[in-house]
Design a protein around this nucleic acid. Sequence first.
DNA 1: TTCCAAACCCCATATTTATGTGATTGATGT
DNA 2: ACATCAATCACATAAATATGGGGTTTGGAA
Lengths: 209, 209
Amino acid sequence: MIRILLYEDNSQLREGLAILLAGTDGFELVGAFGNCTAVAKQVEELNPDVILMDINMPQTDGIEGLKIIRQFNKEVKILMLTVFDDNQSVFESIKSGANGYILKKTPPAKLLEYIHDVQSGGAPMTSSIATQVLKMFSSSHSSTDDFSLSDRERDVLQLLVNGHSYKMIAGELFISIDTVRSHIKKVYEKLHVNSKSEAVAKALKTRLF
Amino acid sequence: MIRILLYEDNSQLREGLAILLAGTDGFELVGAFGNCTAVAKQVEELNPDVILMDINMPQTDGIEGLKIIRQFNKEVKILMLTVFDDNQSVFESIKSGANGYILKKTPPAKLLEYIHDVQSGGAPMTSSIATQVLKMFSSSHSSTDDFSLSDRERDVLQLLVNGHSYKMIAGELFISIDTVRSHIKKVYEKLHVNSKSEAVAKALKTRLF
DNA sequence: TTCCAAACCCCATATTTATGTGATTGATGT
DNA sequence: ACATCAATCACATAAATATGGGGTTTGGAA
């Protein structure tokens, strides 16, 4: 028996899912709410195995809810539901510890299957999402060097990466252009480069930002 | 009735799967081969719904086969089979248009389920693979714009990204520095930027290289 | 206390980049 | 035949960047 907790603001869909889950062997809906405002207490009290979490909800949205849950519970499986398969929320969700990400248009039978999947350690995703995810990892070298840049050097480099000129950086940081030069010279030494674009490239490649 | 085409060089496993599929309602094995040398013709003639493709095969391997099929058929679902769950081939497979990636040790019942999954638009993966994929998922998003750069413009931009100056690029491509300038000017227009480092940043961020 | 690094500033100069306005050739498409 | 565009080259000028030298002040570590 898989204990399920549901967050979904659309009451019609919420009722629909409740009926589906109630009427299916092996699934037990232990709670269904329209928002995440009391998510911490609810998860703790109801102790579900799997949480179905809608992303687009009023007040505390699904991703917020996810983050709150993960602060105190790394065990419960969380399946994010959405109508869109936009990059940003997939990314945010997975990064924040979601176990899977599925579209609401998923047919009921499929949904039940996904719940099973996620409960037994799988990570259900639609194929477009899986593909996106894989593209992203192509250049995966998660190095943690920060080249021991100082805070200010980091500020300056950040702005360089965003395409600002020395003059603009000076303006934005309220320092003189010569100071900008000094910082940049130091940055180049630390990154072992000798041009702006090399520095930018290195910052991006090593995921400094 | 799902029409299945199988590529698997191990004849024992091939026979085994053939028997399994033949003996199960709803599945029909329309062909089984030990290599991909005639994959194009076979796929066209046999018109399968789902292809089970072993990755490690002599001559034309599974990933090659996959690419060949995808050149003329984006519709048929392709499920990659392998004994290893190594990153590189998962990545290559999905990038080349595979719909799922599963391990050979998958029990028969599960395999049939996966075939169903993939046929109805899912992206089955073994949980270990899905988990890996999610771990790799570290940052940002992918886009597929190539900004319609010409070949030469791409060459030049590539070298810029790698930190070369105009002079160096001229030397490496055996063209004059003024030609380099022309190309770069064009690149800036196409990328909507107006400095080297912005171009480099954009190239890297949009995963142009 | 002395030393050091970070953060700030100044000046000078050489090199690199950005931008504009040309032009010629060859391939492609209408 | 004509237009278009990629690819090549040229010349000129302004702006930005790289690099070399200086500095001061401040706060923390040795």
